[in-house]
Design a binder for these strands. Sequence first.
DNA 1: AAATTCTCTTGATTCAAATCAATGAAAATA
DNA 2: TATTTTCATTGATTTGAATCAAGAGAATTT
Lengths: 194, 194
Amino acid sequence: MYEVFFQKFNEKVKLTPTEELHIQQYLTPKKLRKRQYLHQEGDICKHIALVEKGALRSYVVDENGQEHITAFALEGWTISDLSSFMHEQVSSQNIDALEDCELVLISRTSHEELLTTMPKYETYVRILVTDAYVALQKRMLGMISMSPENRYKSFIELYPNIVQRVAQHMIASFMGLSPETISRIRSRINNPKP
Amino acid sequence: MYEVFFQKFNEKVKLTPTEELHIQQYLTPKKLRKRQYLHQEGDICKHIALVEKGALRSYVVDENGQEHITAFALEGWTISDLSSFMHEQVSSQNIDALEDCELVLISRTSHEELLTTMPKYETYVRILVTDAYVALQKRMLGMISMSPENRYKSFIELYPNIVQRVAQHMIASFMGLSPETISRIRSRINNPKP
DNA sequence: AAATTCTCTTGATTCAAATCAATGAAAATA
DNA sequence: TATTTTCATTGATTTGAATCAAGAGAATTT
């Protein structure tokens, strides 16, 4: 039920069986149907979710009604609107399921309690966020320094599983490009200048 | 000597005078002349630096020899190559002083020791990184969803002090735009369509 | 099974930022 | 102070991604 959660946890911070059982009390499983929302803008983000199975995305809608995908999450990934979750602020993000999902949720109060009572949990969170920050820095560097084509190439290298499972126009949205541009980049990659 | 450091620390996690003294033992002050490096690519990043006074930038140089500024840091900000610092990997970042600086440095061993012996320090780091992550997410959202002009506008709103103290072409580099484009955006803002 | 909606591709056109280039002003250096 | 280098501005041109548009194939819904 929480296999992936504890596998990921143990990769960062080693837990004893007793500690695992203790943490389990704070976790709640949740299933999501494809297209179902985990979280909608306007709400305060109530959970951090770890994906045991399935795929989700988070996105914002701008003033012109255009969607911009800000993140994907597959098995083993964690997804949330941290800004809203941390500061109990109204969220501008939406999170929904791209496939049927099995999640493990940590509520805000559980999170707080674990942080204050269990140093290993805080360590886990610190490492998790640090890794996410480093990954985002890399992505940002690509944004300011690479061409769309090279950015797409490194994306498919880094996340081949996302490319396989997620619609192409969503990857375009995630990269800040039009769907047509991604389509043309792909055909350029397959037919290198004839 | 460590005023800004402890001011920032206490904003996130309240310390007693005794605790401050304890942490102080792990800190080392450092002055940097303008143009001096704190850290160069190829090295393993040895410190986290908090800026007591002055301004720094970090940047990478791509295969074409072009510089891309990835971050600025003014008074009260923290700067480092976290990826290199955390994993003791060779860094691709350079960090240098844009003005004469006074810094507070935390070495890797000090950082480790504080993390394991002082829960409040780990809490501070967790909050610091989380805030940085949230800020970077906002910047990323701007990158994929906003026009260069609107991105520049929100930049000067968010960081007016950077705009005042840092050369324009560096802000261009930070935003992934050419210096000419920033110049033209500025003149458009000042002479709104005649 | 039929109808509808979604998804990707391809072509033509538009538009905005990059590039190339030149100039004057300001700052750094000798 | 004179000289050199860096910096910001402005104009002309090029380039590449966005937009507009149409059509074919898949997937969903009815």
